[in-house]
Amino acid sequence: MAAPVKRTYTSTLRADQARRTQQAIVAAAARLFVERGWGQATIDAVAEEAGVSRKTVFTSGGGKVDLLKLALDWSLVGDDEPVPLAERPEIAATMRLSDPETFLAGWARILTDINKRVAGLHRVLISAAGVDPAAQTLLDEWETQRWSFTAGSLVPHLQRLGALRAGLPPEQAIDIMWLHGDPIVYARLVLERRWTPEQFEVWLQDSLVRQLLAP
């Protein structure tokens, strides 16, 4: 009976160690991508920053695009747990709100928190997409997922509440929410124009309410 327990214990330790190694590598890659840019954040630099070998970077995280994808995915949800964004407690709670303005206020808060984490990496992705076809594919997938979530969950929720402004086609409402949720908008106002995240959240909520809801 003791042997299986020992094997399970050893396997768990190895899995935990592998996870910590991957976390360190992805965190190092994310820092270097933002600080140095796509071209200067080499695999060798990531390995040195994470304190591992070049081979370990590839076996644990993959190439540069793979590392950028992991960094973006983890930044989107805030951790490396395999739980989709839509199933996160804050998202689920917001999607249950029945007051349209409260719903949009909650979504503005969520978007602001997300963009605090992803805006810098998203700018790196745009830069990488200009020189790397795999990064362009990743950018296309990112935008498709963002639009699909808006079209499949956010605007339909407002429609079920009967809250959309009269004369506003649902397709246009989707585009409005999709545009306002673009990390580029956050980057322009907060990272470049030096708005505070709190100012951005207030502006985002007000903009969504004014453009989407009936007076």
Rank of each mutant, 00 (worst) to 15 (best):
R14V: 11
D16M: 07
D16Q: 14
R19N: 09
Q22M: 11
A24Q: 14
A24G: 13
V26Y: 09
A28S: 14
L32P: 02
V34I: 15
G37R: 10
W38K: 10
Q40D: 15
Q40V: 01
A41W: 01
T42D: 12
D44I: 06
E49W: 03
G51Q: 04
V52N: 11
V52I: 08
S53C: 07
R54Q: 13
K55A: 15
T59L: 15
S60D: 09
V65L: 13
L67N: 09
A71V: 04
A71W: 04
D73F: 03
D79I: 03
P84E: 12
T94G: 08
M95T: 02
S98V: 12
S98Q: 14
P100S: 09
P100L: 07
E101W: 00
L104R: 08
G106F: 02
W107P: 01
D113W: 00
K116R: 15
A119T: 05
G120S: 11
G120E: 05
I126E: 12
S127M: 01
G130H: 11
V131S: 08
D132I: 03
D132H: 07
P133F: 00
T137W: 00
T137V: 06
W142F: 12
T144D: 10
T150P: 00
L154G: 03
P156V: 06
R160L: 07
R160S: 12
G162H: 06
L168T: 10
P169G: 00
P170A: 12
Q172C: 00
M177K: 02
M177E: 04
W178Q: 06
W178I: 00
I184A: 14
Y186P: 03
A187Y: 13
R188K: 11
R188S: 08
L189W: 07
V190F: 05
L191G: 02
T196C: 09
P197K: 07
P197V: 01
Q199Y: 05
F200N: 11
L204T: 11
Q205N: 09
D206K: 15
S207D: 15
L208T: 02
L212F: 12
L213C: 07
A214C: 07
P215Q: 14
